[in-house]
Amino acid sequence: MVHGGFRVWSGSEPDFPRQAEQVRSLLGAPDNPALLPPQFVAAALTGIGGMLITRSRADALVDAAFALPTRDPSVILAVRHAANRPGATRLTLVARDRPGAPDGTLVDLPTDWKAQESVFATDSIAIGEPGSEHAKQARQLQGQIWQSPPDNLYPTWLYAPVCPASMSLVALHGDRVVGFLLGFQSQPDRDGTTVLESQVMGVDPDYRNRGIAVHLKHQQAIMAGMLGIDAIRWTADPLQAGSALLNFGRLGAFSRRFLPDYLPFRNELNRLPASRLRIEWTVAGEDPRTELSQHRLHLRESVVPGTTCPIANDGPMDLQITPGNPLIAIEIPSDWTALQQSDLATARAWRTNLDDLLLRCLGEGPDQYLITNAVIHRGRVFLLAEQATNNLLRLYS
């Protein structure tokens, strides 16, 4: 699509991945720390309603922008990089129906900013919006956790409070960042549901098992609710036990969609195809008196995998259970990261067979399931998947 000399690329175009990576390369990747990372551009940008905008002259790239949705659905944030000055970043708010417009409202992007007052604190850990030094630490921590190259890390300008396309939080022990959470505004659903796309969260390994991830997510939900956002969504590896127990067991989120080989990169946490579950979480949270909360509590207290419900797999082996069970348990590794490092062949069998199982089982059709909980039983970790009945869909709507 062409707008006044600018070309707008949507994710549905077959040439989008190649064009986006070519633009990133021309703008200085992998050595330009201001660029959005390639895995975000490839897998998430257009899914949240973003786009790639280019302007060429005599077949040479002159200007390019990655456009991000903002809290105003009629306005996008154009993140511009000039081809002759790839290190320079310029943020401009423009009308969504004129994405290539050279004019617009300039967003002053500071290089230094102070942290906002902490919104929550417990056990010597404070949760709040980051300052510029915290943003640098969060970027470094992301690299340490995932052992990722600099090009795969999110730029620090996304953590600035003036950025209208993102929402960020950090967990602090003194002045040390020990956890971070970064999300993006998404275009509303067709039914008007407003959405925050929670893109990346990490906790320093030295500070895990202290509830930091739960506190970050709860504060994110509070901030989103104050902005009128209805739902938070993200993706998670179905084979990461800690993530499953947090998302489904602690937060009360659910999943009805599986995305095989979703992310293009490989790192220490993803040595095999990076398949993902699409996680959905209602911002209003769970009141313990609600019907959904009572349903979840009953499920957790009554379920005994292998006794009250069939187990769909024996480790990496799909057991091909009979369709129609109202509840099934799906075993996942207790330590997926360690398994990838110690026995890649067995890890590959887990990934291949669980991909097939989840692709077949998840959805809203007949004999399909929603993942709604996760439990530990006799040292084994299970996802709990409930049949997608009209009543269950009503509870999670």
Rank of each mutant, 00 (worst) to 15 (best):
M1Y: 07
G4L: 04
R7C: 07
R7W: 06
R18Y: 08
A20S: 15
E21P: 00
R24Q: 15
L27H: 10
D31T: 10
L36S: 08
P37Q: 10
P38K: 07
F40E: 09
A43L: 07
A44T: 05
I48V: 14
G50L: 06
S56C: 11
D63P: 05
D63R: 14
A64K: 03
F66K: 09
P69C: 05
R80C: 04
H81R: 03
A82T: 06
P86N: 12
G100Q: 07
P102A: 08
D103C: 02
G104S: 06
T111Q: 14
T111W: 09
W113E: 08
E117D: 14
V119R: 13
S124V: 04
S132V: 12
E133G: 07
Q137H: 07
R139D: 01
Q142G: 12
G143C: 06
W146D: 04
L153Y: 06
Y154H: 15
T156F: 04
L158M: 12
L158D: 02
A160D: 10
C163W: 04
S166I: 04
M167E: 11
G174W: 03
R176M: 11
V178Y: 11
V178N: 08
G183Y: 06
G192Q: 02
T193A: 01
V195P: 01
V195L: 13
M201K: 00
V203A: 11
V203Q: 07
V214Q: 12
V214L: 15
Q220W: 00
G225D: 05
I229A: 09
I229L: 15
W234H: 04
L239Y: 05
A244V: 07
R256H: 09
F258M: 09
R266D: 02
N267A: 04
N270Q: 13
R271I: 05
R271H: 06
R271A: 14
L272P: 09
S275N: 02
S275D: 05
S275H: 06
I279D: 01
E280R: 13
E280K: 06
S293G: 12
Q294H: 13
Q294P: 00
H295K: 10
H295I: 00
V304I: 15
D314H: 13
D314I: 00
G324D: 05
L327Y: 04
A329T: 11
E331D: 07
I332M: 10
Q340S: 08
A345V: 15
N353K: 01
D355W: 02
R360K: 13
P366A: 14
I376W: 00
A388P: 04
